[in-house]
Amino acid sequence: MNNRIKSLFAQNQKGLLSVYFTAGFPNLDDTETIILELEKNGVDLIEVGMPFSDPLADGPTIQASSTVALQNGMTIPKLFEQLHDIRQKTQIPLVLMGYLNPVMQYGVERFCQKASEIGIDGIILPDMPLQVYIDEFKELFEKYNLSKVFLITPQTPEARIREIDSHTNGFIYMVSSASTTGKTIGLAEQSQAYFQRVAGMQLQNPGVIGFGIHDKETFSAACNHASGAIIGSAFVKALQQEGSLEQNISTFIQSIKN
């Protein structure tokens, strides 16, 4: 399998910056601008959030951005329409992230087919169980050359991490601590032990750390233990500052990178 995620990790082993945003927020039609500005500012990978009414794994910031995005009229068909020509403008790896129910209503195969046509590289659906993926959907994702990215947490047993690793191609999303998104407590010492434990497992997929990464310090700390880190809630918050979208994006990303 050869897609942009694979190439990215093949070329870069360290310090990759991945950013999450909720599509449809702050405004319905900001999707393309946000993607292009993120790329311009040197972000390596983008997770485009598909808003859901009941985002169980998310804290208040992403809950609120999802509510606004839905009020603005964001839907999966709308998002696909917005992303239709995106590959004429950028080759940055793009991952769609959301909850299973809207994807299931759209139709999982139709979703994979459409995503692949557009040039999406990977999918994250935190509430799709590994076993259901293996039994029902793995073939589909492979047919459409989409990486299915799974989460692991400090509580995930080693055997399950290895099982997840064997069914993933792309990267493993290492949730930094037991929490919903948006907690900014920093990276606890227990997390460091968990990062080291995973690093020592020599998995076939690179690891990227997410949840709680919100500034330069936490980003650098996470990068010491994995191929990169993901910033979500802190970026969504930055989009709500006074000023233009372009300015907010540039100010925030530069504060992480410099």
């Binding site: 859901f52 009414s53 009941d54 169980l56 839905l70 839907t75 999966i76 068909p77 909850y99 299973l100 129910n101 809207p102 994807v103 299931m104 209503q105 759209y106 509430d127």
Partner: peptide
Amino acid sequence: GRDGIIHGSRTLLMQTEDGQV
């Protein structure tokens, strides 16, 4: 309701055409 997923279970669920609860 229609076939969907809520609170960790696949079941009948009142939702929009787009799968929002």
